[in-house]
């Protein structure tokens, strides 16, 4: 039983790390700040969320699981606030959104 939960937790962590990879790839390859924010928030929200979930499944204690939930919520709040503030200020400062040049 414990090995089954371990496997499940590890699988969640692997998928989470894949989201981090996608986020970093987006950070490097996307053309402007707004699209990069879009890529990054995937890593923050889903990547860390899945890793937290994986760790919670493995820990097997309710207190730890709640703590991990709190960590995820805090990172969510931080990421959402940061993304919104950066995007709003960038827009206010007149950084133009990228458009495809034909």
């Amino acid at each position: 039983m414990s090995s089954a939960t371990d496997m499940f937790g590890a699988a969640l962590a692997v998928v989470g790390v894949l989201f981090f990879l996608a986020g970093t790839l987006g950070l490097l390859r996307f053309p402007d700040i707004y699209t990069r924010i879009h890529a990054l928030t995937k890593a923050d929200n889903l990547g860390l969320g899945l890793i937290c979930l994986g760790a919670a499944v493995q820990s097997g204690s309710l207190m730890t699981a709640l703590k991990l939930l709190l960590i995820w919520i805090l990172v969510l709040v931080a990421a959402a606030t940061g993304a919104s503030l950066i995007a709003q200020t960038a827009h206010g400062r007149g950084i133009p959104p990228w458009t495809r040049q034909e």
């Binding site: 709190l70 805090l74 709040v77 606030t81 919104s84 503030l85 709003q88 200020t89 206010g92």
Partner: peptide, 16 residues
């Protein structure tokens, strides 16, 4: 203050 979001979030976070 760049956006009204900020005071709201801070109000939420301060107890934590």
């Amino acid at each position: 203050i760049p956006s009204p979001l900020l005071p709201g979030v801070v109000r939420l976070l301060t107890p934590v």
